[in-house]
């Protein structure tokens, strides 16, 4: 028989949640929540929305995408909890869902939750998110555990390096949540202008390839804010991106003077 297919592979099937468009009519802003597994992402989500999802001391607990909503400063926010991933680069379904939502879903803010005790590893994901989107807030969670382990995190220099707001939080104790909300609102409404860090220590080969390709892409799509990411994905052979370039979806998505933030339907991701 045909044993090639992975239709039977028991990956978590998070896909069944995402393949419908998202109705954003009733919301002022859409927030994406990204982060490594086991960083307390779900706890942050629960804190913001008042929902209770089971969160365990295990990697990979959030198996499907959860959605919730809340109001703040008289604005309605919809929050989408993306699958916990270490990276956004592989062909795994979780990572595909996360990166496609951040790019094609065009959330108004992407909140990245990281574990203060493993900040270095978690920054990988943050840097990848910042290649895709300019509007992001970093929530350094589990700061209490970091303190216990004598790790100090300088939120100001972190914010300066990354070019986005940084909040030190302990979601279990509800510490840092008000600040997080303020920053989410500030970035969503455009009051806080992010200057995201872009990856700079590529090998020479890689750098020249990315530059060549992104220059070519910008010639065609001058309004693209993340041509480097598009170039990286094309170099990685990501079919979703190849199709988006080919059928003009990318161009459509980042049309100049597109004042309307609330796209009525998210293209089929």
């Amino acid at each position: 028989m045909n044993d090639k297919g992975c239709e039977t592979c028991p990956v978590y099937k998070p896909g069944n949640l995402i393949r419908h468009g998202i109705n954003m009519t009733d919301f002022d802003f859409v927030i994406a929540l990204a982060g490594n597994p086991n960083t307390g992402k779900s706890t942050v989500f629960n804190n913001l929305t008042g929902l209770r999802q089971h969160t365990g001391n295990w990697p990979g607990k959030t198996v499907s995408r959860a959605e919730g909503a809340f109001s703040f400063n008289e604005k309605k926010f919809k929050i989408v909890d993306l699958p916990g991933t270490y990276s956004l680069l592989s062909t795994s379904q979780d990572e595909e869902i996360a990166r496609d939502f951040i790019l094609f879903g065009r959330p108004d803010v992407t909140v990245v939750v990281v574990d203060a005790t493993r900040l270095e590893r978690n920054l990988n994901l943050v840097l990848q998110v910042l290649e895709i989107t300019e509007k992001a807030v970093l929530c350094v969670n589990l700061i209490d555990e970091a303190e216990r382990n004598k790790i100090t995190i300088d939120d100001r220099s972190l914010s300066r390096e990354l070019g986005i707001p940084v909040v030190l939080a302990a979601a279990r104790q509800k510490k840092g949540m008000p600040e997080l909300l303020n920053y989410i609102h500030a970035v969503a409404s455009g009051n806080y202008k992010c200057k995201p860090h872009r990856i700079s220590s590529e090998t020479r080969e890689l750098k020249s390839a990315v530059e060549k390709l992104s220059t070519r892409i910008l010639k065609q799509l001058p309004h693209l804010p993340n041509a480097r990411w598009v170039a990286l994905r094309l170099l990685d052979g990501d079919q979703r991106m190849i199709d988006a370039v080919r059928n003009g979806e990318l161009e459509e998505l980042f049309k100049p003077d597109d004042g309307n933030q609330n796209l009525m339907s998210v293209p089929n991701i």
Binding site: K4, C6, T91, D236, G237, D238, Q239, I242
Partner: peptide, 10 residues
């Protein structure tokens, strides 16, 4: 389809 699944390897 296989090529797409594998990330169009070269």
């Amino acid at each position: 389809a296989l090529s797409v699944q594998l990330g169009n390897p070269v």
